Each structure stands twice: as C-alpha cells, then as structure tokens.
Simulated assay, not measured.
Amino acid sequence: MRRWFRQYVDAAYERLLSREISGAPTHVAVIQDGNRRYARRNGGDAHDGHRAGVETTERILEWCNDVGVEELTLYTFSTENFDRPAEQNEALFDLLCEKLREFADAEQVHEHEICIRAIGETEMLPERVQNAVDYAERRTREYDRFVLNIALAYGGRSRLLEATRGVAADVEAGDLEPDQIDVETIERRLYDRPVRDVDLIIRTGGDERTSNFLPWHANGNEAAVFFCTPYWPEFSKADFLRGIRTYEHRAESWRRTRARRALALLAAVSEPDLPEARSIVDRFRDSLPTAERSDLEAIERADASNENGQGVEGIDSSGRAAD
C-alpha cells in the first residue's frame, strides 16, 4: 500500500512539473554520480551499480526526446578514473563495449536519428573499447536530429591544454597570426565535430561541484546547474524535470537582468548607444515586473517629450521615474 501511494504521488508530481515547463534547454550535460555508492547500499559491487546506471541512461534519452532537448552529454569515464582498481575498470570497459554496440544497433536510436559520439582522450582506452566507439560512431554518423556525446577518458582542463598547445604550435610555425585567434579557433581544436554550448548541467549523487566537466562550453555560456541527491540509478523523470525547471528559472532571471540593465541605459548612456538598449528592452520587456514596466513607460514618455523639446526630467540615472 505504501509503495503504491508513493508511486501515485510521484506520478502526480511529475505531471505537475510537466505542466510548469514551457521550454527546454538545447544541450544538457549530466555527471552520472553515485553508481558505486548505490551498489554498496544495496549489497552489490561496483559493476552492479554501473549496470543499474545504464538503465537510467536509456530512460533519460526518452525524457530528452519528450521535452525537446537536442544534445545530451554524459560524463561516463574521466581520466582520473584510470586510478581506480583494475578489476573495476575492466568490468566497466566490458559493459561499455556491450552497451555501445547495443545502442548502435537499437531500433529506437535509428528511429529517432541519434548520433552517438565519444569525446575525450579515447586513445587511452583499451582497444576493444575504441573499436566499440568506432562502431557506434560509424553506425550513427549521418544522423543529426539528436546528439549523444559520451565523455570517455575525459578531462576538461586537459582538452583545453591540448587546444592551447595546438594554437601555439600553429603560431610558431607561421600558420596562424595571433590576432586571428578567436573563439572558433579554440573550439575547432577541442573536438572533431562541434559541441553546442551547454545550457544545463545536472549532477546526481549529492556532491555540489561540476568536476571540470565541459569548462569551455559551460562557463562561457553561464550554464544553469542542478545538483540533486539521488544516486544515478535512482534518478527519475521528476528529478530530470526539476533540472529543466532550474534552467528555465535561470533563463528567466537572465532575461530580466538584461532588461533591467538596458532600462538603466536608456536614461544613462549617450545617444549612439540608445538603439541597442531599446532593442534589448523590447526583446525582454515581458520579463520585467509590472512596476518596472511602468518605469519603462515613463522613459518612453520622457523620450517623446524630449523629441518635442521638453527634456527628460523626472528620470534618474537608474532608469526609474523620480518621485
């Protein structure tokens, strides 16, 4: 009875979250933490936890499709993980080989045109894992409706370091001028194919840190971050939707901040900057609270008066109407 009631409550909460969500991030990145702790708590070994976690991976692909996410990156194996006991890693490598080939042949992968890619120092992995990666990438290379990035032998700082070394080598060889270095120059050297900026990072297992995950794509885009306590095998659709809601709140806050800054600019900056400020306000007008929309209307009335030679008295430097 208690289990049935819990399932009923969870289903109701999931429906509520689904109604609250009006949009979805384009790219979600997940740190799948807690597989081993889940296994220990349930009397199993690390391999049992990883196998249980794969089931969650299969479900999150469905959830992404449900809400409209277009790219998913899973932090599956870091460069630091090589320091774990060999027997644990070998069992995980066997599981990766099995699931990569299984995913690459799965009917739903081809039905939804999922492109599977590995990012990271994959040459550090055992040959059998490299072969499985190559098989999955070849089988799905032509798809572009949804991208699944699997971070294997991945280290965010090491990728940035290698990209920087590549740029430095090109400059030294005379193939690249320093003033030609831009964002695209670095991004082309990070991965073989483009990776979108990350909109939302989810970490399971209770730790509140991003562990050097996609630092270039996350920090530059000011990604929203959602930390939650369930171990990865326990991660539910309701947890996923809570993460999406966190992203939406962050995006709304960003729009409101942009609108407020532009609102202040309308009263404080020079004439050449005003068109851009007005454009930002027009785009994000609906993000402002009602009281601040009144301030905007006051500025617009003042602008109209100014055009008629009456000046802009009554508006202070913060963009708010004076009492």
Rank of each mutant, 00 (worst) to 15 (best):
I31Q: 08
I31H: 02
I31P: 05
D33I: 02
G34P: 00
Y38K: 02
Y38W: 15
A39F: 09
R40T: 06
R41F: 05
N42G: 05
N42I: 00
G43K: 04
G43T: 04
G44P: 14
A46F: 05
H47E: 09
H47G: 10
D48K: 08
D48Y: 08
G49M: 04
G49E: 04
R51W: 06
G53Y: 14
G53P: 09
V54H: 01
V54L: 08
V54A: 15
T57F: 15
R59G: 01
E62S: 13
E62G: 13
E62F: 07
W63Q: 01
W63D: 00
N65D: 15
V67L: 13
G68E: 12
V69M: 01
E70N: 10
E70C: 07
E70I: 13
T73C: 12
Y75K: 03
Y75F: 15
Y75T: 05
T76Y: 09
S78R: 06
E80P: 11
F82E: 12
F82Y: 09
F82A: 06
D83G: 09
R84Y: 10
Q88V: 12
N89M: 13
A91E: 15
L92Y: 07
D94K: 02
L95P: 08
L95H: 12
L96D: 06
L96N: 00
L96I: 15
E98H: 11
L100K: 05
D105E: 10
Q108F: 15
R117Y: 11
A118F: 11
A118R: 10
G120T: 00
G120D: 10
E121M: 08
M124V: 11
L125N: 10
P126C: 05
P126I: 06
V129C: 05
A132P: 11
V133N: 01
A136V: 13
A136Y: 06
R139W: 04
R141Y: 14
E142F: 13
E142R: 10
E142H: 14
